[in-house]
Design a protein around this nucleic acid. Structure first.
Lengths: 119, 119
DNA sequence: TTCATATTTCGACATAAATCGAAACGTGAG
DNA sequence: CTCACGTTTCGATTTATGTCGAAATATGAA
């Protein structure tokens, strides 16, 4: 994943997060850390019908904020911290005058297992 | 302006910024600093019809990201740095696991005149 | 192969967002 | 008062987004 966003990627990411269910979904995946969560577990946690959830997952994926890996029958989704950092980077650099802003907000997964974020 | 955002304000602000014209508009106002810009000047800079611009200005205002003051016949719009900081604060605190994030991105207007941001 | 499970895609619908000309509004000048 | 100016609101239209059941796809088990 690229670690800098341009205006277009930024709009895509902002739009992806600018929705009640998707913001909650992304936060859930952030909490879940590097292990991620299966679609079914997410649907249950957020009390969403599978088809609706799938729609939102696709939206966040398109924006590069989350990614997918298959684990047997389940599809595991994980938050993409690099993309989140890129988004914050763009906002602080381009929407705060560039001047008096904190250089870069840097975020890392609260990794609980052995796997690390290979984005 | 409140200096912490909750999920709802965050969604509103994200949605406001998640649009080509509005992101450009907000950036323009950030560059303009504390002096702000008149609606007409913005319309010209962004090459937008007045009515379209007005729609976007209202959207950003509703989200608390910009504010309005009258100066004779003109309406002057200025970026609301406090709101931007609140947004960044929410994102770093709630969407980065809270843990390994930079404490708070803090942004200040690149004030060129004597007035300061009284938000 | 046949079946159950996990998840996505499709289709139909409802709702919200964006666009922009024309008309209305507020403000100051003559 | 009347007029010009800067800006917003209105109205009509187009386009995009969100929702969710039902059907389709992919994986693994028996």
């Amino acid at each position: 994943m690229r670690d800098r966003f341009d205006a277009e990627s930024t709009i895509l990411a902002l739009g992806a997060l600018a929705h009640e269910n998707r913001l909650a979904l992304f936060r859930l995946l952030v909490q879940a850390g590097a292990e991620g969560m299966a679609a079914g577990a997410i649907a249950e946690a957020l009390a969403l019908p599978n088809s609706s959830l799938s729609f939102h997952l696709a939206h966040l994926t398109r924006a590069g904020l989350i990614s997918q890996t298959r684990q047997s029958r389940s599809l595991i989704y994980t938050a993409n911290y690099a993309a989140m950092n890129a988004l914050l980077g763009y906002l602080t650099e381009n929407c705060c005058g560039g001047a008096a802003c904190a250089p870069d907000a840097q975020c890392e997964p609260t990794s609980t297992t052995t796997q690390r974020n290979a984005a």
